[in-house]
């Protein structure tokens, strides 16, 4: 069968777009991008689509131009790790469909291969994150000793994060333990009186745990009036920041250092 001339039914298209939507949202796309990508693909197949994006579900109806045949489905949003790589490739896919470069079956195949692709090397990520947080310490005015300690604290903390998440620990529990470990290690400077900026070392040692992308996505959704998603993403990010702070406070209490 020639896939480009195949006439897709609303049901087939809806089931595909619904899966596409929950994966795109799960990998950390903003609501506005999701709407645009889904609508673009539906139009390419001569259909129209209306969707409701909720924090944990996507509810979608696909219909033909005359509204004679319709199909509705609800899917649960997948909570996978944030991946701009998958986000980018799924957006590319939507344009390939819109520009009629690929047909329905090929698009489905391409989609499955994109979502099953593996993320980058975790050791490289670990190293880059440690370097990043050490430079961050520098941006806040830390000296070389503080940078070194922050690098070590991040290395240990982020390694723990990777290991706990791989074993299926809850994200909030993970953030708490990582913040605790990193702040205890970051406090070494203060404990032994190394360097001139021990307070900056403790303060920045946990910053790699701040959920930056969820905060940014949340406000992006707010600007496009997706208030419910914006609020839920904001609360998610706030809770993680809270867990981070509690972990940090416990670490500082253990090392007998005050936050202010």
């Amino acid at each position: 069968m020639d896939s480009t001339s195949y006439s897709v039914t609303s049901k087939e298209l809806c089931l595909f777009l619904s899966r596409y939507a929950v994966f795109l949202l799960g990998c950390g796309a903003t609501c506005i991008r999701l709407e645009k990508n889904v609508r673009r693909m539906a139009h390419a197949f001569g259909k129209d689509v209306e969707l409701t994006i909720m924090p944990r579900h996507v509810h979608m109806t696909v219909y033909g131009k005359d509204k004679n045949e319709m199909f509705t489905s609800i899917d649960t949003v997948l909570h996978t790790a944030i991946s701009f790589d998958i986000n980018t490739r799924l957006s590319e896919l939507s344009w390939e469909v819109a520009d009629r470069k690929i047909g329905f079956f090929e698009a489905k195949e391409r989609f499955e291969s994109i979502i099953s692709s593996r993320s980058g090397n975790r050791w490289v990520v670990l190293l880059l994150v440690s370097l990043a947080n050490a430079s961050f310490c520098r941006l806040f005015g830390g000296d070389w000793v503080a940078m070194l300690m922050v690098g070590i604290a991040t290395l240990a903390g982020f390694y723990l994060k990777q290991q706990l998440l791989r074993r299926g620990f809850d994200a909030r529990v993970t953030v708490f333990f990582c913040a605790f470990l990193s702040s205890v290690l970051g406090a070494t400077c203060a404990l032994y009186g190394w360097g001139t900026t021990p307070d900056i070392a403790i303060g920045t040692s946990v910053l790699y745990l701040v959920p930056g992308i969820p905060f940014l996505n949340s406000f992006s959704d707010m600007i496009y009036s997706h208030y419910i998603c914006a609020f839920s993403r904001f609360v998610d990010a706030l809770i993680l920041t809270g867990c981070l702070s509690v972990g940090l406070c416990c670490g500082m209490l253990l090392m007998n250092i005050g936050m202010f």
Binding site: I82, F84, D85, T88, V129, A132, R138, L139
Partner: peptide
Amino acid sequence: LQDALFAAIAAIGFSAISNPPKRA
């Protein structure tokens, strides 16, 4: 320049957490 350099290193590392495409 120092600020720009360290911000660039920080951005590379923090973006690595959210798996961007390599060319980005």
